[in-house]
């Protein structure tokens, strides 16, 4: 390492030798100092770096300075920002073997309330964006995920106890799912809408429109592929989402927030809350400003209870069912959160 630097510097000093005596001498002194610093870093041998030849010779050298680990503070994603839980609570997230991975915020009902108002604020702009623009942004999310693939593979493997290969396959499938739904944004209207033949002098057109603010209880088992599979179709059609992550493995979801924040997705379109579906779910299900709820992450009794609460303001409800996240997603989830607007337009005979 040090020899490389030296040679590079010396070549520089050669090339600049014509530019005057003073600058020339400066270059040479620079080369000297860099070779010295190269030696010192080599002898200290930071973890992960390949030791310089000198360090190999010193068998009883100074103790290796161990680098302190930098732990990540996982936070919620609400309104395009990364707040801690309003309640100040966190809970321990552990891997499948029970070893501690990180602390995740434990969202409260007030975080859910804030998330719903952020989603409501973002809904108009997102629903009004062109389908083409939404598609571009969803594709951008896939691009951003691709760049942070290793991080997600690590988090998925830790949280779900998958082998590295298995986790990589899940992450790849999740990235591909964003691309799949990115393609659907400007095509769903043709599939779900169209002109209707009517018995009268009318031109009759149906077009699908987003439902509004959709609360999503993400699947508990598949922390990333399942999460993307329920989230992407909701926002692809122009809805705004308030999502409660898997309780056991929330880390990939919280990291996804960082990806969404850098993908041109307007703040508030997706809001991610880590916590328990049993605590936050009832408040979302009863919230009058939530237009639909996806109960995928709720188990039998809870799902029933939430569906009853959701009936108060006639929310659309997507009931939980056994799903294979690796299978072809189809358009079922896209169509679940759409309203059909039909226009009757008189025509001259």
């Amino acid at each position: 390492m040090s020899s490389e630097r030296q040679s590079k510097n010396s070549s520089e000093s050669k090339s600049s030798s014509q530019s005057g005596k003073t600058s020339d001498s400066r270059k040479i002194s620079g080369a000297k100092s860099s070779s010295e610093s190269g030696k010192t870093t080599g002898s200290k041998s930071a973890p992960g770096s390949k030791g310089a030849p000198e360090s190999g010779k010193k068998s009883a050298g100074p103790a290796v300075a161990e680098r302190l680990s930098v732990f990540k503070t996982y936070k919620l994603f609400v309104g395009g920002k990364f707040p801690r839980s309003e309640s100040g609570r966190v809970y321990e997230v552990s891997d499948s073997q029970g070893a501690w991975l990180a602390n995740a915020p434990l969202a409260s009902r007030k975080d859910a309330r804030d998330a719903v108002s952020a989603a409501r604020k973002a809904f108009g702009g997102w629903a009004g964006a062109t389908a083409y623009n939404r598609g571009q942004i969803l594709y951008r999310i896939a691009e951003m995920l691709e760049g942070r693939r290793e991080q997600f593979v690590r988090e998925v493997a830790g949280g779900e106890g998958l082998s590295p290969a298995g986790a990589a396959a899940a992450v790849d499938a999740a990235i591909d799912r964003w691309v799949w739904y990115a393609g659907w944004t400007d095509k769903i209207a043709q599939v779900a809408g169209g002109s209707n033949p009517v018995a009268g002098p009318f031109f009759n057109l149906s077009s699908p429109e987003p439902t509004g603010v959709v609360a999503v209880l993400a699947p508990q088992d598949s922390s990333f592929l399942g999460l993307v599979s329920v989230l992407a179709p909701v926002i692809a059609t122009g809805n705004a989402a308030v999502l409660v992550t898997s309780h056991r493995a929330p880390l990939p979801a919280l990291s996804l927030g960082e990806v969404l924040a850098t993908s041109d997705l307007p703040g508030g379109v997706v809001n991610l809350l880590s916590g328990t579906a049993a605590e936050i779910g009832p408040h979302l299900a009863a919230h009058s400003d939530v237009n639909a709820i996806d109960l995928t992450g709720a188990d039998g009794d809870l799902a029933r209870e939430l569906e009853i609460a959701a009936a108060d303001n006639l929310k659309r409800v997507l009931r939980p069912r056994a799903e294979d996240w690796t299978a072809d997603p189809g358009t079922g989830r896209l169509l679940a959160f759409l309203e059909t607007k039909t226009v009757w337009h008189p025509i001259g005979v």
């Binding site: 409501r120 408040h283 009058s288 108060d312």
Partner: peptide, 14 residues
């Protein structure tokens, strides 16, 4: 006020 009387969060539609 609606939240306090019904226990459910209200919204601007109401």
């Amino acid at each position: 006020r609606q939240k306090l009387s019904t226990g459910r969060y209200s919204g601007p539609d109401y």
